[in-house]
């Protein structure tokens, strides 16, 4: 185990221990039903967190994703209500819009040499506002195809449902893992997280890569928006406020270093599931306030930040020795 993989193993260990604790108290939690629901309920978060992982690995941040998801829901709902387009066509349109939006933010970040924090903060307000422009109210989605999507599942042994959404999340994670860890693009992302200037000296086309990174995040946010619209069967411009922060938290709990350059997409999946597990536990318990989720997540985040700092210091000490 190296200092590189340690946070990942720590994440997995925490998840397993947490699951064990839950299981000892509520044996019913170790059932395929709970696992299936864990995947379905957190699908939208998992999908968007994959995009966020790539952004954070590159040393950036994308605050716009929560608003983009909300916009996506409204966009889909309004399009389905007002036009005769098939949902698949609408999805394709939406993904084109959100990807272009991400690419535009990436371009601004590079051309204006602005911090991603500021540019995507502007993007956050912009996307939220665009959602309001389409509709100020919640728009229900009543399309037969949506019923099909919602009810598409594989019945696991033990009556757990592995839904389309859950599968979509797992596929997103798998795709993200290949992209980040097995392609030249992924190496460029890590390189930029290690140091943009050095990356440039080593031949990374920094501008193009920045555009690609935020385009990918925009695409994943759009995909997450599709998942969320299937999950809720509606579009509401006020939905998903703060989801970007949950995604960032999942990435960090997943062992990715917030300053970029080190981490694993798979860890993000575990991060998302850990956050989902806490919520499930609270549901099972029944007496705890849901605010406990936030408190536990806060504590976990703090722990991981301390762990990363410690590893960093250890690394510098070893390099100096």
């Amino acid at each position: 185990m190296t200092s590189r993989t340690l946070p990942l193993f720590a994440t997995i260990a925490i998840f397993l221990i947490a699951y064990l604790v839950c299981y000892l108290q509520f044996p019913a939690m170790l059932s395929t039903r709970v696992i299936g629901n864990l995947l379905t309920d957190n699908a939208y978060l998992g999908i968007v967190a994959v995009g966020m992982t790539v952004v954070i690995l590159s040393g950036g941040i994308d605050l716009s994703v929560g608003s983009v998801i909300a916009f996506s829901g409204v966009f889909i709902a309004v399009m389905l209500r007002d036009t005769g387009l098939h949902p698949l066509v609408v999805f394709a349109l939406l993904l084109a819009v959100t990807t272009a939006f991400g690419a535009f933010m990436g371009g601004l970040i590079h051309v204006l040499a602005m911090p991603p924090f500021i540019v995507t903060l502007a993007g956050m307000f912009l996307a939220r506002g665009a959602g309001y422009m389409l509709s100020v109210e919640s728009v229900p989605i009543q399309h037969p195809f949506y019923e099909v999507l919602k009810d598409a599942y594989y019945l696991m042994p033990g009556k757990g449902r592995l839904t389309l959404l859950g599968v979509a999340m797992l596929l997103s994670v798998a795709g993200g893992m290949i992209l980040a860890h097995r392609t030249r693009f992924g190496t460029r992302v890590f390189a930029m997280g290690g140091g943009a200037q050095t990356a440039q000296l080593m031949g990374v086309p920094v501008g193009l890569t920045t555009v690609q990174i935020y385009a990918f995040s925009g695409f994943m946010a759009g995909l997450s928006g599709v998942a969320f619209s299937i999950y809720t069967a509606s579009g509401y411009p006020l939905a998903m406020v703060g989801t970007e922060l949950n995604a960032i938290a999942a990435v960090v709990i997943g062992g990715t270093i917030l300053t970029g350059g080190a981490g694993y997409v798979f860890g993000t999946l575990i991060g998302v599931l850990t956050m989902g597990l806490i919520q499930t536990y609270i549901v099972f318990d029944g007496s705890l306030s849901s605010w406990w989720t936030k408190i536990v997540i806060g504590a976990l985040l703090l722990m991981f930040i301390l762990l990363q700092k410690g590893l960093l210091r250890l690394g510098t000490a070893r390099a100096a020795a």
Partner: peptide
């Protein structure tokens, strides 16, 4: 001017 967070082979 190499990247410490990548492996030697990647660098």
């Amino acid at each position: 001017n190499l990247l410490p967070n990548l492996t030697v082979a990647e660098n």
